[in-house]
Design a protein around this nucleic acid. Structure first.
Lengths: 233, 233
DNA sequence: AGTCCTTAAGTTGTGCACATCATTGTCTAT
DNA sequence: ATAGACAATGATGTGCACAACTTAAGGACT
């Protein structure tokens, strides 16, 4: 927002993080759909650097399961098969519940305000349901939720799994496999419930609400995928 | 074991994995103690390669929290402070229980045999209690436990956290903060219990035994560290 | 004697040229 | 016409030289 040059200032670590977060965002928002080939040279040029630092970013994204590099062929955005999706969601459910039980932190006023702002943003979605904007708000909401626990390892694991699977859900929306207006409505109720739970200081309940919604959201997606195409090629 | 050359044959991915596993093993077995500086040039020479592929390995180990690189200074083996240790163990406990509940797999005869072999190795420890050998057997035991679930994401998360903290436990043993013979005795009983649980096909019980032992092991370490040095510098 | 600046050495980070590998299209022999 | 070999192309992987940076030692000035 503030600076024009994409990846210029700051330390090497800052530049790494900026490139990493940006490419991850593009993958999760389906700017780079599963199967897309990423050009190292092109990306390096775009970020105003050489292949060497960029390759470090791609290697990290590969370790996070978002990319896969094949020698002599290319670097591709990964897809997630049904088995992996099911397994990942099973773990995500358990971790979602742990957010409220392991090292919960009383949310600051700023964080509460942030949740309210997210609620407001989600309401604008009801008038103008845009999948991409929905995904972005969903992502911001997730990041805010992570701040409810002080347990750093738990945060890391949860984020890894979230970024690994959220684009599959978005893909279902884009493919009109699940109804966007329904999802927006349900999402709005989820935020409302969690804001209320946080308001009375019960993070455990907030986490349980979250768990329930992740679970139901997954079930809707699963049914939609299975009725349309039992096996994804 | 089979080949003399450390990192010669195979594809680039194989070489990467070999170097990664070897350096991780050295860190977890305290061949490289926390605070040690690792020389990129020396390591690259040892593995018969250049800095470029080795740096990729070091970057991965840094993302796993085992190393930390500082520009112009060096690459150091990380230590784990008490707060992080407590948080990590809290998550490890929950994940240990999930191993028996999420996607459990009936162990193959080969795996059962492996557990029995581990039991035999643990018994040799009682006659000759060596911390390093203990740590290696403990690591092999952990890897075997992971094969009790088919849930790949759960495996990954569990391994990450295990390798992150196990060297701290070993450090306590080396510092004689906790009694090695006691630990060996308890470890032997843990394997025995888990082998029995697996024998009757109850993986959930096996996981609960594991969880209990991880929890108690942590409590012993925690008390030892707190009585000796309340705050590690 | 003490403080500050300069300089030298050593480390990680970067850029570039080349090696290695997979793919594809073409040419030749049957 | 078709099957197989082969060369050309373009991708990732590797090696090396240099830049950026930190630290520590040494000397000059106060």
């Amino acid at each position: 927002m503030t600076c024009e040059t994409p990846a210029a200032g700051g330390s090497a670590r800052d530049r790494f993080e900026r490139m990493h977060d940006e490419i991850r965002r593009r993958i999760c928002l389906l700017d780079y759909a599963p199967g897309t080939r990423l050009s190292e040279e092109t990306l390096a040029a775009e970020f105003g650097t050489s292949r060497t630092p960029l390759r470090r970013v791609l290697a990290r994204l590969e370790s996070e399961g978002l990319l896969q590099s094949v020698h002599g062929v290319g670097t591709f955005v990964t897809d997630v098969d049904l088995t992996e999706l099911v397994q990942t969601y099973r773990v995500r459910l358990e971790l979602a519940e742990l957010i409220g039980r392991l090292d919960p932190v009383a949310p600051s006023l700023a964080l509460v305000a942030e949740f309210r702002a997210l609620r407001a943003r989600s309401k604008t979605l009801r008038d103008d349901p845009d999948p991409r904007r929905f995904a972005q708000i969903n992502m911001d909401f997730f990041v805010a939720l992570m701040r409810l626990t002080a347990n750093q390892p738990l945060r890391e694991m949860s984020e890894r799994l979230y970024f690994r699977t959220t684009r599959i859900w978005l893909k279902s929306v884009f493919a009109s496999l699940i109804d966007l207006k329904d999802e927006v409505e349900i999402f709005d109720r989820e935020i409302d419930g969690i804001v209320r739970a946080i308001g009375i200081g019960d993070l455990e309940v907030a986490a349980l609400i979250r768990r329930a919604h992740v679970s139901m959201s997954f079930e809707r997606m699963r049914k939609a995928v299975e009725t349309r195409s039992p096996v994804t090629p």
